[in-house]
């Protein structure tokens, strides 16, 4: 699918909330299956696993929770998992920055294989974080403490890489999330430099956007990055508790700060908790809708934007609403701003 000439941006309404405390713990990333489930990667000190939760939401509470994986360094276990992606066959890949490896699970969550070892040579990791598939089905991996990007086959064969430590354009400082778009361009959340950068498949810098701050196109520790089929770019801005959205040229569009309502499971739970309901009434209830420390952002082929709301035990989902425009509906780019109204 080629990218549209232009977009009529109708809005980006809030869709729904998934989960609550006790059913989802510290969601650090989210993926999805072909049969309508979210795969919510959960991580906190001493706990790590994947929760399987219907994207349409569910009434479930502590019984019948589905998921896989556990905390530990054994096969199929995780210590500090960072990101989760799925391939066309439903296999699940998870990076782990403590064990320095990528683990593959089958669609049922059973361990299949792993690769990776600690080091700074080609084909080694020091804290792998972001992972994404390139158009050829290879894995692009952020090697965070080596400040570089590496490419592997899904079986772990090293194919190459680029990147160096620093703050100059094109350099990286403890990078975190990554997304490879359908053209093969590589978008990286450059955590320590408070920016995101896009590279060609060969590693040449294309754009770099951001600096430290809380204004538009400013960041306080960007974590995840996602690009949709229109070329729009989303960056989770950890310290500013938001996700910023840019067009394909890196022009700031708007921010998502959170609009959460109660999930179905949360509604059911709260009906039996009189004290909690009273405390919410006494408190600053408006706070509840906002994002807290998002560590990732993802968008699926239906343009649903998933934000794992790390410190609020839930996933917030928005639905993109646009109309694709052709050349007759969207003027050519202007070099200068104008006050003329047409």
């Amino acid at each position: 699918m080629s990218r549209p000439h232009g977009l009529l941006r109708a809005g980006y309404p809030y869709l729904r909330t998934l989960g609550m405390r006790r059913v989802i713990g510290y969601p650090t990333d989210v993926g999805w299956t072909d049969d309508g489930n979210a795969l919510i990667l959960m991580r906190s000190e001493g706990a790590a696993s994947v929760r399987i939760w219907p994207i349409e939401d569910a009434d479930l509470f502590t019984d019948d929770l589905k998921g896989f994986g556990s905390y530990g360094a054994g096969d199929g276990q995780m210590v500090w998992p960072v990101q989760l992606i799925t391939d066309g066959e439903g296999h699940i890949y998870i990076s782990d920055e403590a064990t320095h490896r990528i683990t593959r699970f089958d669609p049922d969550g059973q361990f299949v294989s792993k690769f990776g070892a600690r080091g700074d040579s080609d084909g080694e990791f020091d804290g792998p974080t972001g992972i994404s598939f390139d158009p050829d089905g290879n894995l692009v991996v952020v090697d965070s403490k080596n400040h570089r990007i590496q490419r592997y086959t899904v079986d772990g064969e090293y194919l190459g890489g680029f990147g160096s430590h620093g703050s100059e354009p094109g350099q990286l400082d403890l990078p975190w999330g990554v997304h490879v778009d359908e053209l093969g361009d590589i978008y990286v959340a450059d955590w320590g430099n408070n920016r995101f950068q896009a590279f060609s498949p060969e590693g040449e810098l294309k754009i770099a956007v951001g600096k430290l701050g809380d204004g538009e196109a400013e960041f306080d520790r960007p974590t995840g990055v996602a690009v949709d089929a229109h070329g729009d770019i989303y960056v989770s801005d950890w310290g500013n508790n938001r996700v910023q959205m840019f067009n394909s040229e890196g022009h700031y569009l708007w921010s998502f700060r959170g609009d959460a309502s109660l999930s179905r499971v949360a509604r059911n739970y709260m009906l039996t908790n009189a004290m909690s309901n009273r405390l919410r009434e006494m408190g600053r209830i408006e706070q509840e809708k906002y994002l807290r420390r998002p560590r990732s952002v993802r968008i699926d082929s239906d343009f649903r934007l998933f934000i794992p709301d790390y410190e609020s035990y839930r996933v917030q989902i928005y639905q993109k609403d646009v109309v694709v425009l052709d050349r007759t509906q969207f003027a050519a780019p202007l070099r200068n701003p104008t006050l003329e109204v047409t």
Binding site: M20, R280, E288, Y313
Partner: peptide
């Protein structure tokens, strides 16, 4: 102190 939101459903505030 101002009443913080309850532990449930979203954790401590």
């Amino acid at each position: 102190f101002r009443q913080p939101l309850s532990l449930y459903p979203n954790g401590h505030y």
